[in-house]
């Protein structure tokens, strides 16, 4: 990963803060979040459910619920452009589904049940194929030239082969409920890679799958992303998943980033107390599981300072007053803690 250090970032999230309006008040879902991702890198975004990792992923994709989400400050720079400031039309046409694509958590409900798989894949190719000239045309009456359609279909069949789906032509004629969960997620990976993106956002891509299939899907994703030099931002609550395919890991807790590190440093020298507790809570060979005492905080009235302080046995007064700045315990390793583990 030493090469990654000098390369320019593909994605830089800086000081991103946003809230959701709820019945109980404004929930501060993200609080000054930072994240860096280099081209071709696979970054795991790890945390408990409700820590804001899915919200961060959706913020990058620009699909936060419009009437509820309120972005307070920060920026999301992708390839030099701030996605939060960019023109929505350009984002929808040239970024979303084109240079940034998406692998959803639940491959079953993410297919429209009443259209064939082929229809839905070709719909994506019609708008997001790398052979499509940029811009132009009304969305409802947009021509799909025959030559490009044929080329796109060839690309789809080749990609189905690449994600190791047997009988690609037959699969295109099927409806989503007629293929298995693992096959559906392979299709989702194919659809994410077909537009030849630079970044894939994978939101818990294996959570809905059987354990036996999870590993296959992860390996496939890892191999294809590396082959094509595609960066992946992978959210997961499971450190095992992250360990299997990631180059680096960013840990979030209650809407704040607490630690980011290359994979080996992360597992060998975790610095943040929360990261340490997270690693200690992994099931061990002797079968003992050690949980983290306390509860995830209420995001409407979050704790001041470091949000982990009520559950942290190292917490002191500064922790309760102000959020610690980033420090670097090692190369490409960043932590936000006044009292990091050595």
């Amino acid at each position: 990963m030493s090469a990654g250090m000098t390369a320019p970032d593909l994605l830089t999230v800086s000081d991103l803060s946003l809230g959701f309006r709820t019945d109980a008040g404004l929930a501060r879902v993200l609080d000054g979040v930072n994240l860096r991702l280099q081209a071709g890198q696979i970054m795991g975004l790890v945390g408990e459910s409700g820590c804001g990792k899915t919200t961060l992923a959706r913020a990058v994709l620009g699909i936060l619920p419009r009437h509820v989400a309120r972005i307070d400050r920060g920026s999301i720079r992708f390839d030099g452009t701030d996605l939060l400031q960019a023109d929505e039309k350009i984002l929808a046409d040239q970024v979303r589904g084109r240079s940034i694509t998406f692998i959803p958590q639940d491959p079953f409900s993410s297919f429209n049940p009443v259209f064939t798989i082929g229809t839905q894949m070709m719909e994506i190719m019609r708008w997001k194929s790398p052979r499509r000239p940029v811009g132009s045309g009304s969305p409802l009456f947009h021509a799909y030239p025959r030559a490009r359609r044929a080329a796109d279909r060839e690309a789809v069949l080749a990609m189905l082969d690449a994600v190791q789906l047997p009988q690609p032509k037959q699969i295109l004629a099927k409806y989503p409920h007629e293929v298995s969960g693992g096959q559906r997620q392979r299709l989702m990976i194919a659809m994410a890679l077909l537009p030849e993106p630079r970044l894939v956002i994978a939101d818990e891509p294996t959570t809905a799958l059987d354990v036996t299939i999870q590993a296959q899907i992860l390996k496939l994703l890892r191999r294809l992303a590396t082959e094509r030099n595609v960066a992946v931002l992978l959210t997961t609550h499971d450190l095992g998943t992250a360990y299997e395919i990631c180059d680096g890991i960013t840990v979030m807790y209650a809407g704040q980033d607490v630690e980011a590190a290359p994979i080996d440093a992360f597992f060998r020298r975790p610095a943040h107390p929360y990261t340490n507790k997270l690693l200690a809570s992994l099931p061990r060979p002797d079968g003992k599981v050690q949980g983290i005492p306390g509860e995830v905080p209420n995001l409407v009235r979050p704790p001041m300072g470091c949000r982990f302080n009520p559950r942290c046995d190292r917490a002191t007064d500064p922790c309760r007053a102000e959020r610690p700045a980033l420090t670097a315990p090692g190369p490409a390793h960043a932590v936000r803690c006044y009292h990091p583990h050595a």
């Binding site: 929808a92 046409d93 979303r96 429209n112 719909e123 997001k128 659809m191």
Partner: peptide, 15 residues
């Protein structure tokens, strides 16, 4: 979820 997915993939919303 399938509408969320299509939005995330930038399919025109009117379509």
């Amino acid at each position: 979820n399938h509408v969320l997915y299509q939005r995330a993939m930038g399919i025109p919303s009117r379509l």
